[in-house]
């Protein structure tokens, strides 16, 4: 992106470099949310449905992880994926995969914590009915996840918002490489450091617009679903 054109122009002309940045941001954040959902939803359900010593403590820890600093997660993943680190042989540092891994770690606790609350509430309601219908543990988890799906969508959205907005983790593990690992947020950080504040603000507006659109779509899906399923 050249600094001498305005952000508005870049958007209106669908500047290829800008579109690539937007595309990569969406791909990385949505992939991370998908992976985090696969980890977080069953984990949340497990904590909601089981009773074990130290359960309260694990809920406190999980809720505390909501505030994980992205840059710390980025650093941990960096050290893990570094050639000198334990997973160095994968050779994926400074690639979009590394960014997905970092954001997955960032987002999974959010999804798990919100899912735990949602599923536990529903479980209190369903427990007797499912026991009376002789539904086993796997069936219970599946039933609760399915019936809470519209509430869980909110958890996924919260995760997406976090992933799309963070810069600390992706810049450390992705490296902000032009055309390869540059996302909306790292581009904003870069333009800010170059002193091109109008372009940075313009990119920020685009980012906000995308998050609003994604939320609106999810909200619409949720309302439609609730009308059908109650």
């Amino acid at each position: 992106m050249r600094g001498d054109v305005s952000a508005l122009q870049l958007v209106l002309t669908a500047d290829p470099a800008l579109m690539e940045i937007v595309r990569l941001s969406l791909v990385v954040s949505l992939s991370a949310v998908a992976c985090a959902a696969v980890i977080g939803l069953p984990l949340g359900a497990l904590i909601a449905l089981t009773r074990y010593p130290g359960r309260e403590a694990s809920i406190v820890v999980l809720n505390a992880l909501l505030g994980l600093p992205p840059v710390v997660v980025g650093l941990l993943v960096y050290l893990l994926l570094s050639r000198s680190g334990p997973l160095g042989t994968w050779g994926i540092l400074f690639t979009p995969q590394a960014m997905v891994i970092a954001q997955t770690i960032l987002v999974a606790p959010i999804i798990a914590a919100l899912a735990r609350q949602t599923i536990e509430d529903l479980w209190l309601e369903y427990r007797d009915e499912l026991a009376a219908m002789n539904v086993g543990p796997a069936g219970r988890v599946a039933t609760l996840l399915w019936d809470a799906r519209f509430s869980l969508l909110t958890a996924l959205l919260a995760g997406f918002g976090r992933a799309a907005a963070e810069v600390g983790a992706v810049i450390v593990v992705g490296g902000n490489i032009d055309g390869f690992t540059r996302t909306m947020t790292t581009a904003i950080a870069l333009e800010t450091s170059k002193g091109d504040l109008p372009l940075a603000i313009g990119l920020g507006m685009v980012l906000i617009a995308i998050v609003v659109v994604v939320n609106a779509l999810a909200w619409g899906a949720r309302r439609a679903g609730e009308r059908l399923a109650g």
Binding site: Y126, E129, T143, A229, G230
Partner: peptide, 25 residues
């Protein structure tokens, strides 16, 4: 195990599904 008996609670919990889907479940 409760395979040959059933219960209706005083305040039955409805699954968040259609009436037909509740029975189907």
């Amino acid at each position: 195990p409760p395979m040959r008996r059933a219960i209706v609670f005083q305040r039955p919990a409805m699954l968040r599904r259609s009436a037909a889907a509740n029975v189907e479940y």
